[in-house]
Amino acid sequence: MTPLRQPPFTVLSGPEVAEQIEGSRPELVTVVRRAYLAHAAERSSLPHSSFLRFAGRERDRIIALPGFLDDDDPVAGIKWISSFPGNREHGLARASAVLLLNDMATGYPQACMEASIVSATRTAASAVLGAEALVGDRRAARIGFIGTGLIAGHVHRFLRDLGWRTDGYLLHDVDPRAAHRFAERALADGVPAATVLDDGDAVLSAADLVVLATVASTPHLTRPESLEHRPVVLHLSLRDLAPDLVLRSQNITDDTDHAVRERTSLHLTEQQVGHRRFVDGTLADVIEGRLVRDPDRPVLFSPFGLGVLDLAVGRWVHRRVVADGGGHTVPDFFAQTS
């Protein structure tokens, strides 16, 4: 029997994480795809995310996402991510996070990394994976972004690095300055045109592929006619669409039990109609051919954001940073080792 040894405990900074991700986005889409398929094959353990909320502060929350993924390279851990939208008024990022990875031989935590970048990366990777599976190509005449913050920026960079083709972006944000900054970055990256619109419904009505990446806590897109042209909608922020729009659409999730809760648009729709039969299946069903996009309806992809995706991306980052000699190892971190 090989004796067990306490693993080193390594801290990875945000710049180290970002350095590994930059230039590797196509590979990370493959990492996320593999994690989705392993989860669909029941090779994971994924308790419901726990939401820590605060009386009188409806917008603020901290979420714990524990999980285990066995995609031939087992990994376990937990992401602890906060969302405090008021931070932006003080020049701070809305979201901050850490990811802990555990050694699978001993159970010891072996890595702690800055995880807002990991979280945004896996969200964007899942979005473009869903877009390609549902569009059937890496081409959309008009791509719309409603919400032009951090997550939208990561989705744009994935679209850019995967070679998506478009005639231009349509943009809306409650802060028009943010939308104009996003437009400038998109144009600098080679997007042919980027137009800022005053109304989110106008973006939804005109774009063929729509990215919803807001911080909305209640539905604000309510016009059923906005979906008459049958777009593909990546509903990343989960709470933007009124139940009437959900019911008119083909609905795809990453995991239905996770996505139909915590007052998401899907959850509100379930509460209204008393069932969840309006959910057609998961992205894994689409990837593996069990579910085909209905061309006669708009399609909504509403990924709850599975913790196993954070683990898959975090494991990939950890190994690359350590292989490059990076990270800060903390000696004698654990008080008792025997």
Score class of each variant (00 low, 15 high):
7 P>D: 01
13 S>N: 02
14 G>A: 14
18 A>S: 08
20 Q>P: 06
24 S>Y: 03
25 R>E: 12
25 R>V: 09
26 P>D: 03
28 L>Y: 05
33 R>I: 02
47 P>E: 12
47 P>N: 10
47 P>V: 08
53 R>H: 08
55 A>G: 12
64 A>P: 07
65 L>C: 09
65 L>G: 02
69 L>D: 01
70 D>R: 09
73 D>I: 00
75 V>M: 14
76 A>I: 01
81 I>N: 01
81 I>G: 01
89 E>N: 07
91 G>D: 05
94 R>V: 15
102 N>V: 00
107 G>D: 10
112 C>P: 01
114 E>W: 09
118 V>R: 02
120 A>P: 05
131 A>I: 01
136 G>M: 13
141 A>C: 06
142 R>F: 07
143 I>Q: 05
152 A>E: 04
155 V>A: 09
157 R>N: 04
160 R>G: 02
164 W>C: 01
171 L>T: 00
177 R>F: 13
179 A>L: 06
183 A>C: 10
194 A>L: 12
196 V>N: 08
198 D>H: 08
200 G>Q: 05
206 A>E: 15
216 A>Q: 10
217 S>T: 05
219 P>R: 08
219 P>E: 10
228 E>W: 11
228 E>H: 14
239 R>Q: 11
247 L>S: 05
247 L>T: 00
252 I>G: 13
254 D>L: 10
267 H>V: 00
272 Q>C: 04
277 R>P: 00
279 V>Q: 06
283 L>A: 04
283 L>V: 03
286 V>H: 11
289 G>H: 12
310 D>I: 06
317 V>C: 09
321 V>I: 15
326 G>L: 11
331 P>V: 11
334 F>I: 05
